[in-house]
């Protein structure tokens, strides 16, 4: 099974590297102009969507922001996909099992790793072991089954929506269907292995032990298929819009909720200096200043007249 283990190491590396690269790309983008959208989560006592700009002479007063409010808004959005619930209820009924199922599958993977570490350090994660090891065993099984069932149900629902709902079908590309079928295949092979071959996910735990201890481990064909599909999916994921967990973070924190006034941000003032010295090549007559023109020239030429 070295080939499969090698593929898994590679998949994890590709996933981490390219997801981090995506995040770095957004984090290092030039300072953009303010484009906030209310309600902004960190405002205090403004649940109706108000802002600091409702206060007279707001720039003379200390800014009140709440980290707790931000965390609360994020938690509700991440855990319950609240915006979809409010704006696209039908889709939520299939999207939530899918996303909720993914969270549970992630918990299952974490429990698998935890169980593998227990095994590596001489413990035994099994139904008949000590109470806490047995609990770990049953929790893993529960998370694995519930997560994969929910993901499968969600995938089928999303495929049905993309097929039968006019609005979704019109804009869905072959890639959108492929992504769902891919995820469904991972979940279904995992479930099949659990149901037919290994009701305790012991083989998968052993596979993770092998990964952690650099030892080859044999797997049943169904789990070979499952682990291969999972590794391939992990390799593919960073290159798709399914990394929207990254995009959502930046969309909310760096755009929608980024209301920091320039006057209070030295970093923004420095970034502005850099931005205005960038070259501009838009050629329309009202801009045209020829080659080598900088933004500062283009935007101040008429102002300084």
């Amino acid at each position: 099974m070295w080939a499969l283990q090698g593929l898994t190491y590679l998949a994890v590396l590709v996933f981490v590297f390219f997801v981090a690269r995506r995040a770095a790309r957004y984090a290092s983008a030039p300072m953009h102009l303010r484009w906030e959208l209310y309600p902004v989560a960190h405002e205090v006592d403004k649940e109706y969507g108000g802002s600091f700009m409702e206060e007279m002479d707001w720039w003379t007063k200390p800014r009140r922001t709440s980290f707790f409010n931000t965390i609360k808004a994020m938690a509700i959005e991440i855990l319950f996909v609240k915006t979809l619930w409010e704006n696209s209820r039908k889709l939520w009924y299939v999207s939530y099992p899918f996303h909720g199922g993914l969270y549970v599958v992630i918990a299952y993977l974490a429990l698998l790793v935890l169980g593998s570490l227990v095994n590596l350090f001489g413990g035994q994660v099994a139904a008949n072991a000590d109470w806490w090891q047995a609990a770990l065993y049953w929790l893993t099984v529960l998370a694995g089954v519930v997560g994969m069932v929910a993901v499968s149900v969600g995938c089928l629902g999303l495929l049905a929506m993309r097929t039968f709902s006019d609005g979704l079908r019109r804009y869905s590309t072959p890639a959108d269907y492929f992504n769902l079928v891919f995820i469904l295949a991972v979940a279904v092979t995992g479930l099949y292995g659990w149901a037919v071959v290994d009701p305790g996910f012991s083989q998968q735990r052993a596979f993770v032990v092998g990964l952690l201890s650099l030892k080859a481990v044999a797997l049943s064909p169904i789990f070979v298929a499952n682990a291969t599909l999972f590794a391939l999916f992990l390799t593919y994921l960073p290159f798709t819009h399914m990394t929207h967990f990254v995009g959502k973070f930046f969309n909310y924190h760096n755009v929608r909720w980024d209301d920091t006034p320039n006057a209070s941000s030295q970093a923004n003032q420095r970034a502005l200096g850099e931005a205005l010295n960038k070259p501009i090549s838009w050629p329309a007559p009202h801009i045209g200043g020829g080659a080598g023109q900088k933004w500062v020239d283009a935007v101040t030429r008429e102002v300084n007249k």
């Binding site: 953009h32 102009l33 484009w35």
Partner: peptide
Amino acid sequence: EDDNWAFLGPLML
């Protein structure tokens, strides 16, 4: 990054 620094980040997203 030069011609559209003002909105590049949000646009990419």
